[in-house]
Design a protein around this nucleic acid. Structure first.
Lengths: 143, 143
DNA sequence: TTCTCATATAGCCAATTGTCAATATGAGAG
DNA sequence: CTCTCATATTGACAATTGGCTATATGAGAA
């Protein structure tokens, strides 16, 4: 409980990507693969952020077979982490990015870890450019 | 009031040097020269930190002749800044560095901006290694 | 055992950050 | 006006950080 812990907690929550992870976990624990699918950053990047959040006492992990689920840490090893989690719950709920993440979060939760992983860490979306590249037969050259 | 403001406020308070400045200002407004004398970093460095704190809505300035006094910003342009100032007041009061700063803070406040500036941004201290370098005659080579 | 797959870790690169030295600004003194 | 001095700003540098690719780990399946 020194400056070191303070700095670790504050720098952890200050990063926008880690803040997004924390806001997602406010809705309950999530599998790493689900976080990857929602945030759309590389697996190693998400993994690294989760490590930092864990070190700061902000999240905890639960291993379940080959999956690892993360959730907000209620045990609160750090008073700074505890307070910041509390603050965050009332913050940024109207933010554009956070709201967009919440929509994707719902899709990821509905699908579950298994389907997300099977799809290669992507969400099952309807009408997405990357997912359904419009297999029209003769759409090109109809002009 | 977006992620941008959030990030600015959080990153501002996360830095240990800026945290020290905020903890000093909890005791009331201070002149830039006093902050320099207490923290012992170069004038340009302190000035830059103050700029970042001001941008984040954490501190405000008051110009008084050739001196500039900074204080915690009660007007609170940023909700994040407001909350973090409140949090900080209950945090780190037992920290070694913060306590040491408080001792130097008292000396700086007692002396006032004028004397601090006249001394070249240093504190009037008795028995300090840097101030009184022990003028022993033949301490070297006694072995 | 070996293979697969979800996650973690290592190594690299570009961008950001904290510090200092040098210089600019700007207000009061003369 | 000029000079001085407190502070702000700029430019350079090293250290840190966030992202990626590639590789390692480790558990379940075969």
């Amino acid at each position: 409980m020194s400056i070191r812990d303070y700095e670790q907690a504050m720098k952890s929550v200050a990063d926008p990507t880690r803040m997004r992870i924390l806001k997602l976990l406010e809705g309950g624990e999530m599998c790493v693969c689900q976080l990857i699918a929602v945030i759309e950053l590389k697996q190693s990047t998400i993994s690294r952020h989760l490590l930092l959040l864990k070190r700061a006492g902000l999240v905890k992990e639960r291993k379940d077979g080959k999956w690892v689920h993360y959730s907000l840490d209620g045990s609160n090893s750090s008073r700074y982490a505890r307070k910041m989690l509390q603050n965050l719950k009332g913050w940024l709920n109207d933010d554009r990015i956070v709201k967009k993440d919440r929509i994707r979060e719902k899709i990821a939760r509905d699908a579950g870890p298994r389907e997300i992983c099977e799809r290669g860490m992507t969400l099952p979306m309807r009408r997405t450019a990357t997912c359904c590249p419009a297999p029209r037969k003769e759409a090109v050259g109809t002009r």
